[in-house]
Design a protein around this nucleic acid. Sequence first.
DNA 1: GTACAGCTTTTCGTATGCAAAAAGCCCTGC
DNA 2: GCAGGGCTTTTTGCATACGAAAAGCTGTAC
Lengths: 241, 241
Amino acid sequence: MTSPSSRRRAPRGPLSAAATRRVERPAPLRQAVYEALLELIVNRTLAPGQHLVEAELAAHLGVSRQPVREALQRLQTDGWVDLRPAQGAFVHTPTEEEADQLLAVRGVLETYSAKLAAEHATATDVKHLRKLQKAGEEALASANVDRLVKANADLHAAVATIGRNKVLSEMIGLVDRRVRWYYTPIARPRSRDSWNEHADLVTAIADGDAERAGEVMHRHAEQTRRTYHDHKTSEETVDSD
Amino acid sequence: MTSPSSRRRAPRGPLSAAATRRVERPAPLRQAVYEALLELIVNRTLAPGQHLVEAELAAHLGVSRQPVREALQRLQTDGWVDLRPAQGAFVHTPTEEEADQLLAVRGVLETYSAKLAAEHATATDVKHLRKLQKAGEEALASANVDRLVKANADLHAAVATIGRNKVLSEMIGLVDRRVRWYYTPIARPRSRDSWNEHADLVTAIADGDAERAGEVMHRHAEQTRRTYHDHKTSEETVDSD
DNA sequence: GTACAGCTTTTCGTATGCAAAAAGCCCTGC
DNA sequence: GCAGGGCTTTTTGCATACGAAAAGCTGTAC
């Protein structure tokens, strides 16, 4: 099963690479597996509904079943896989209903996040936001979808961070990533409109206007939700976030 | 170490009992461990900051280290323990800051939950809420703290359920339980005021008035937060929820 | 030709074993 | 008397082993 070539941990890289990581982390191998599997799920290498066999994944990743199991369990609690009792892990298949519920929750959380950001933003924070906004505009101009998606995520994450509520930030991170997963395959970035709204948001935060920042984010979220529903009925490729 | 008496799963009961459980769960032992540990943490048998040694827990619960490990990992992702890289699990020690952030998030989520409940509540739902309200009043009269805490949790959970958003319900469940954990040791149920507010909430939901339900819940949450801060400064035993 | 029963295969769930890292302790040197 | 270094002990992290349950398949009976 597991290839005998990969015994123990894998310090395969050159020494320089090893040195850079030496100060970082001792050895959370299960987390590496978690991230690897999450990446495979998000980029659809592992399709929704697919049965994930522990031994296969272990062999593919060059580790034993144990870290794989632990990663799968965490993936379950984060909503990426379903762990059927005596049958193993299956990549979660999102339903329309669940996607809508997630979008709704995300909207609520992000609206609050925007308010907090407006209340707490420093000059440095605003500077950072404007930089991210600019990066988004550039990605928009380059028509690079991946860059656009990343710029979008970065901006929202930055707003959450500025809000200074770690609990909230983590939740938004989880919800956001799942929403994007459900949403990406059927969607092309809403682009222009979306980044205009982002600009309004940044301005409101820069002004310290919590009420307005909340409103802008709420509308932004509702717009996304509407776009999603429009797609649902028309089955065409539509905008995202 | 592990007592040899408890080998394998336990279909010890008579066939009738086995039949009733057969449809329920096959054998999620790790979940039983999760719940057992969570109970021990919540009721302070395992104190915040305490080092949890896998082997000890395993011996105490009569299982091997494996299910204990898996339970600990899930406890970490749910915020109950901190898993220091090569050092094991420690019961999470809540900080003032974190408690406040949790209270804030809970307020936002529950406010939205109340709105949804008002929009979706059926006559049966309202009936159920009134029953829980009544149970709360009775617990209040009996001055039984445990019953009061449970009645409170039940009512909030029921509101979340009525909202028909499972994602939201689960989140509220997690956040709520943690808030109560932080909160309970220093607090006695706020009782009278709290249940008056609950009554207003139920009425608003019964009227299908989402706006008002949201406002009431928001005030309810803010009141809790204020009470918490009052305690923080005065260090006296104060109200809860 | 189809349905059911029994067997085989696959895969999970749990237990155990082993090596490495961290913590604690003791001993030595100054 | 105190600080530092090395050894021992403890505990985690990963790997492997084994038993049980579920799924799938095959053969037989009707």
